[in-house]
Amino acid sequence: MILESIVTTVSPSGDINIAPMGPWVNQPEVLSTGSGEGALTEGLPRDPGFVLRPFAGSRTCDNLLQSRRATIHVTDDVQLFADAVLDQIEHPEHMVRQIQHDGFRPLKHCHQWFAVEIQSITPEGPKYQMPCQVLASGIELPMFGLNRAKHAVIEAAILATRTHLIAPAHLRAQVAALTPLIEKTAGESERAAFDQIGLEIERRLKQQPELPNS
């Protein structure tokens, strides 16, 4: 399965990059392990078999090619997803903390985090395939739970990254189909994030050559 996550990486100069990414998860049942014996705790990692798939040329990809290390986060903070997709995160260094393993910067506020080291790197089309090993992991905060508006924001965020691939009419139709989920089930944070993404989608569509609608 694919996990919609937030990934932090560190550049050779020490800059923190926070970006959304959908890594493949080979053993998703590990993600839902509860508390108690065998639970995720720092220093006692359980490994769900992540495969990172960054786009070539992205800051995340460049950092991974250099360091071969990243921290994958499970979070339901849709405002963070929106800010990361739109590259509107200021002072990312204030949002992370250090752990005993070098090269990893977990977010201070997330549900779970996994510090991973890349085992191999294979180019595949516009992306790389990077199977990982978990070196450390932890649980920080409780998960809010399922909410249709949160999922709508994630879908809109993904659409914002594909304005150069999807015809404008089709893209706007997909955003419109998500709007009722926001209207019916969103809180203030979800509404703000969805509106923020919608404005950015329109800005990006106006700045690029028009795609055919079919």
Score class of each variant (00 low, 15 high):
214 S>N: 15
130 M>E: 06
66 Q>M: 12
113 W>D: 00
202 E>I: 08
195 D>T: 15
58 S>Y: 06
9 T>K: 03
36 G>K: 13
110 C>F: 02
102 D>L: 10
80 L>Q: 05
70 A>S: 09
8 T>P: 07
77 D>T: 01
51 V>S: 13
81 F>K: 03
53 R>M: 15
94 H>S: 14
110 C>Q: 12
27 Q>A: 11
134 V>T: 13
27 Q>E: 15
39 A>H: 14
159 L>A: 08
167 A>F: 03
167 A>R: 04
35 S>H: 14
164 H>Q: 10
83 D>G: 10
180 P>F: 03
212 P>G: 02
213 N>P: 09
90 E>M: 10
143 M>I: 03
79 Q>F: 05
129 Q>S: 14
186 A>Y: 04
109 H>D: 13
43 G>W: 06
160 A>P: 09
214 S>W: 13
148 R>C: 10
76 D>N: 04
125 G>E: 09
34 G>N: 13
87 D>H: 13
58 S>M: 05
110 C>K: 03
184 K>G: 06
68 R>N: 14
123 P>W: 11
200 E>G: 03
24 W>L: 14
10 V>A: 02
212 P>M: 08
125 G>S: 07
69 R>E: 11
109 H>F: 02
141 L>K: 10
16 I>C: 05
84 A>P: 06
106 P>W: 01
28 P>N: 12
123 P>N: 06
37 E>P: 14
148 R>S: 11
78 V>W: 00
149 A>V: 06
168 P>T: 00
12 P>Y: 09
67 S>M: 10
43 G>P: 06
69 R>G: 11
183 E>V: 12
126 P>Q: 11
78 V>P: 02
13 S>Y: 06
2 I>D: 13
162 R>D: 08
